[in-house]
């Protein structure tokens, strides 16, 4: 009723050409946004109940394979800036020296030192980035995930040098120009905010594993609740020798490596 009044009125004003389009736009076919379903958790989460973690069996990780990187970056609309200065990455491969710069190299074999290792946000239990953030935009979620609230980030970038793992990337320019094949299920970021891996919190609520875990052809990645003694990841952690990145800093990373 109101719409009709308005439409009629707009006709009178004769200038509302563009606005009039809105009223007549029933002709446009439906666009493709996925229908949402209820999440797997329907109650308000209890903080501290779970702590998500990841175990990377680097022995299984194949050289040259970039499937996890591609899947993650596609799923989350991560822009592909080519120049290194503006590069944005959530998960990437790096040399042993760069991933474990403070590890004692004496014991590491030539073979290990020549391999590349996956690096991503460690979702530290004691995270320096959340501590330094002046607005609490980078914060620790109830489930141990260190998340960035892109609605709140002021782009001061103090978190970037605060992170000992270089996990944060800044949007030096509008990321939309460099997103190759955007997906509708996950938003992009905007110019001027910091972004990083979110442990696929968007997939977890659907009851799915993180994209990198799911896509890995060798099942080198294991994801699960570090607080649950029965979880796969806990079992593996107890039966294997694992290491964390820069453990001496006391950040308590949630990402573990089997070398």
């Amino acid at each position: 009723m109101m719409n009709e009044q308005r439409r009629e009125f707009i006709k009178k004003t004769a200038l509302g050409v563009f606005v009039g389009l809105g009223a007549a736009s029933g002709l446009v076919p439906a666009f493709s946004l996925e229908k949402t379903a209820l999440p797997v958790w329907d109650e308000k989460p209890v903080p501290g109940k779970i702590r998500w973690g990841m175990l990377i069996d680097t022995r299984k990780c194949k050289e040259g394979c970039q499937q996890c990187v591609a899947a993650c970056h596609h799923e989350h609309n991560v822009p592909a800036f080519k120049n290194r200065r503006e590069e944005i990455r959530w998960i990437w491969k790096n040399s042993y020296k760069n991933v474990f710069p403070t590890a004692d190299n004496a014991g590491a074999s030539k073979e290990i030192q020549s391999r590349t290792f996956l690096s991503l946000c460690n979702h530290c239990a004691d995270s320096p980035c959340t501590q330094i953030c002046p607005t609490g935009a980078t914060f620790k979620r109830w489930d141990g995930i260190v998340e960035i609230d892109y609605h709140r980030c002021i782009g001061c970038r103090f978190c970037m040098p605060a992170c000992p793992y270089g996990s944060l990337s800044f949007n030096w320019q509008d990321p939309r120009t460099a997103i190759v094949d955007p997906v509708t299920a996950y938003p992009t970021r905007e110019q001027g905010v910091v972004e990083k891996c979110n442990f696929c919190s968007d997939r977890l609520i659907k009851g799915l594993q993180p994209a990198c875990v799911e896509v890995c052809p060798e099942q080198a990645l294991v994801f699960g609740d570090l607080n649950d003694p029965a979880s796969d990841i806990r079992v593996l952690l107890e039966s294997n020798v694992t290491m964390q990145r820069k453990p001496e800093l006391g950040t308590k990373p949630s990402v573990f490596y089997i070398i």
């Binding site: 290194r84 590069e87 800044f170 949007n171 030096w172 320019q173 110019q191 001027g192």
Partner: peptide
């Protein structure tokens, strides 16, 4: 245009 107009970058964020 964003802070891309500066010389700062991923590693030299300050």
């Amino acid at each position: 245009l964003g802070l891309t107009v500066t010389g700062m970058g991923r590693e030299a964020s300050w």
